[in-house]
Amino acid sequence: MIAITRAPAYLTIQDLGRTGQRSIGVPRSGAMDRLTLEVLNTLLGNARGDAALEWALSAGEITFDEGVRFAIGGAEAVCLLNGQAIESWRTYRTAPGDRLTIGAPSRGRFLYIGVATGIQADIVLGSRSTYLAGGFGGLHGRMVRTRDVLHSVAQSRANEVRDLAVALPADLRPRLSGDRIRFIHRVDENDTFAGIIAGDFVISQSSDRTGYRLAGDTAMSGGSITSEPVLPGVIQLPPGGEPIVLMADAPTIGGYRIAGAVISADLDALAQRVPGERITLAPVTMEEAGAALEERESLVRDVEAWARNHRTRSSSPISIKPLRP
């Protein structure tokens, strides 16, 4: 049992979200920083897309009423387990009554708390993710509040031997930095409009799980269009001209001009930028986008390989290699 003894301003259950239902208007939702979720789950021996807690904005506290293995990652914050400082990207096992205190993030925006086997929630339209605007997923479609009680999907596995803290090597941890956000311009053959944007922008205060509004000096011609399908990452140019980058909870269609879309590999880094931070939008080719995504994928694969090796080493102290004939 995981009791929320003091919830932060914004706490939801998220996994990797929903796919294949955009035709009926169901957005992806899911973790804003998917890379952190994937790596955290892998560190815990979970499936990549298991559900975790997405924690934002302010401080709070969780009490564990049972032995649970957990890890935190993503935004930086002062985290204490029974008053003792703990680190990100390291697994800890709790004893009943243990208190985890999490400070307001000092760097980055979304912090994730993963537990072994994942956070339990009903699977709605293929995902445990909370979609607040639709009122479904996660914990009854709403934010997790103080006095809510959560559970892991299953009691930790019987053969679990890693009671000690296990730390992910530094080179396998997702980096929180990254203010150069790459995107692909929309290239039209017949349309008269091709929104040209690039350069420096500041993340505006009106930025949330639906979209990040960007403020910049560059004057851009925004406007309305007949609504087209859109996705997380799409850069819209509304009539005011200040771009909006659509994020996890964005609707499935949009009626603003489209300048392009942030590449899949850079959406996690963008999600972690807070209002007031400066970013640079840099146009890249499809090839560069592909290479960046492969690089992101290979990090998760490396973490998987590391976790596999680590598990083998710690659970079978005597390892006998079969002799080659």
């Binding site: 692909i184 929309r186 039209d188 087209e228 399908p229 996705l231 799409v234 392009g260 942030v262 995504l293």
Partner: peptide, 13 residues
């Protein structure tokens, strides 16, 4: 006539 364009690296419109 249709215009065909990239919607980022994961969609064609």
């Amino acid at each position: 006539p249709p215009s065909i364009h990239a919607l980022g690296d994961s969609a064609v419109t």
